[in-house]
Simulated scan of single mutants.
Amino acid sequence: MTTEPRLFPTRPLRGVKAAYIRQAGCPSSVAITVSDFEPWEQGVEFEVADTSGVPGRPAEWVSELHEAFGSGVREELA
């Protein structure tokens, strides 16, 4: 086991995919994300681009999911 601090990669990471799929019946829950990460010279800063969309769902609902995704990534990066 290493005791060295974990550093953010020094190169951009593009197209990082994550999926959450809960198939317990109908309707099932599915979330699929594709993210790009880039190094930042002054530390880690995380921004969420507002390019998400969920067909047939209201904007308020999509906004809530968008905010939850950003919070979760920030927690993991911390």
Rank of each mutant, 00 (worst) to 15 (best):
G72W: 06
D50V: 07
E47P: 00
S71Y: 09
V34M: 11
T10L: 14
A31Y: 11
R74Y: 08
G72I: 03
T2C: 04
H66I: 01
D50N: 12
E47L: 09
P58H: 03
V62A: 10
C26S: 15
F37H: 01
L65W: 07
P27K: 02
D36T: 01
I32T: 07
L77H: 03
A68S: 12
V48K: 07
S63Q: 12
K17F: 06
T2I: 07
R6P: 01
V62T: 15
A78Y: 07
G70F: 00
Q42K: 13
L13E: 09
R57E: 15
S35T: 03
Q23K: 10
A19C: 11
G72P: 01
S63M: 09
G15L: 02
P9H: 01
P9D: 05
A49W: 10
V16E: 09
V73G: 00
T2V: 07
S29K: 11
V62W: 06
T2Q: 02
H66S: 02
P9K: 04
S28E: 14
V16K: 04
D50K: 10
P9A: 01
A31G: 04
S52R: 12
A49Q: 14
A24T: 09
Q42W: 08
L77P: 01
S35F: 02
S63W: 06
R22T: 06
S29L: 15
V16W: 05
E41T: 08
A59S: 13
V30P: 00
W61S: 08
R11M: 12
F69Q: 02
D50Q: 04
E64Q: 10
A59Y: 07
S35C: 10
H66F: 05
P55S: 02
A19H: 10
K17S: 11
S29R: 10
R74Q: 13
V54N: 10
T3K: 03
R11Q: 15
S29A: 13
W40A: 11
A78Q: 09
E4K: 02
V62F: 07
R22E: 14
F69A: 05
F37Y: 05
A18M: 06
I21C: 06
A19F: 00
S52A: 13
V73T: 06
G25K: 06
P5Y: 04
G56K: 00
A68P: 01
A49M: 06
M1A: 10
V44G: 04
